[in-house]
Design a protein around this nucleic acid. Structure first.
Lengths: 229, 229
DNA sequence: CCTGCCTTTTTGTCTGGACTTGAAAATCAT
DNA sequence: ATGATTTTCAAGTCCAGACAAAAAGGCAGG
């Protein structure tokens, strides 16, 4: 008989989707809702809080909660560890190191990572394959000033992503997704025609307010990122 | 003096990022944490629950909570209402209807929306512009069996997205992002060269377990979706 | 009319206690 | 041993009551 916070949540969501409570309209206060559902205010609060987090409603002290006029839609994509992503499809994962060098950071990278002129970076190019066919091309730059261990690390057997996760497991990240055309090198590595449109993910990772690494991941032709909610 | 759930959360997160609690290791139980922080178990619970939601830790009844070995990373992108997105940049939004027709659903659409053969759909092609330059190309298909109102609706002044939101504000959606090459028509509309790589967002919207609409949004050349966390 | 202060309303958070649930572990029966 | 059953433990949820904090609205003084 007693309503759980889930019950309350889905009941309220139902009222909204059925159009009983229209966008912009005021929802009864927590106290009132607690009474109608026969539960404690804390329970109603949790239901409402989660609805607010999901972008369904908007809450403000004193003014109360109202149904959002423009439902704030947000898509959540899981960023998989590539080895996992491939192995979960029942395919064989293979990794190949294409190039490894230590260089002075080029201009564009310095701007992006806010590096001093003359900074040394480790530059790696690798390929991730599923059942032998190219899956993802990784172009990785690591700030050696912050991660001098990267100088000695060996990336011939496993990728820098996994190594980095062991070094700085939790950090602030900026992710950006765009479309790019395959140049000659990419086309060769990803086994596609030059000029082919490819999905690209760029990630800048920060640690203690300093940029640690920048990576440009180019996915195989036809790759799509999908989510539902 | 008393610790809030935020304090607890950031303290625990600190212990993890500083490496005091390493990936895979067991975190003290809620009761123990409540004692060390001098707070109620419910407060600790909230802190831990949120950390779990954010993919930092993993919780299991009986076994306890542990730091995730592979931090589950997830990117959250806001799906903006395009008019807003443009106006918030201080640019003038303009909408143009390129094509509007009522047709029998083509094969590929029937498969995607699970439609009966012979189903009628409203097909719209529109363009969203910022300061007069093309911003996004919208190719929209609406299931008339579910939304007969779409037959009479007038889309010459404002886009179908806004109209749809007023009709079915909250619904289940599948979003998918990929890269595509501009064909002749797209190139003309988006004012770019044919073959140019473009970011494409596809959305299928469901309501009461029936597919209502499918839309293919192609962004202007160079567009990027960005998020940080 | 405007400005700053106070009151009131509503959400936000916390407490300390309780019961529920899921799953691992231990026990028991075959 | 092996499979079924019970125990036990940690997280999950709930409650009733309390205080905190933001913000809208009203009031008073200039």
């Amino acid at each position: 008989m007693t309503a759980t916070y889930r019950d309350i949540k889905s009941d309220i969501l139902g009222k909204i989707t059925r159009g009983e409570w229209t966008p912009g309209s005021l929802i009864p206060g927590e106290l009132e809702l607690a009474e109608t559902y026969g539960s404690a205010r804390a329970t109603v609060n949790r239901a409402m809080r989660e609805l607010a987090e999901e972008g369904i409603i908007e809450r403000k002290r004193k003014s109360g909660s109202r149904v959002r006029l423009t439902p704030l839609r947000q898509a959540r994509f899981d960023i998989p560890v590539i080895r996992r992503e491939i192995e979960e499809q029942g395919r064989a994962y293979r990794y190949a190191l294409v190039r490894s060098e230590v260089v002075e950071a080029p201009e564009w990278l310095r701007a992006r990572l806010a590096l001093q002129p003359g900074s040394q970076v480790r530059h790696l190019v690798c390929l991730h394959l599923a059942d032998g066919t190219p899956w993802q091309h990784e172009d990785r730059w690591i700030n050696l000033a912050l991660l001098p261990q990267a100088l000695a690390a060996d990336f011939s057997a496993s990728g820098p992503t996994e190594w980095l996760m062991s070094q700085i497991p939790f950090s602030a990240v900026e992710i950006s997704i765009s479309a790019t055309a395959a140049d000659a090198a990419l086309a060769a590595h990803l086994d596609c025609a030059a000029g082919e449109p490819l999905l690209m993910t760029e990630r800048s990772t920060r640690w203690n307010d300093q940029m640690v690494t920048y990576v440009r991941l180019v996915h195989r032709p036809g790759h799509r990122m999908t989510t539902r909610y």
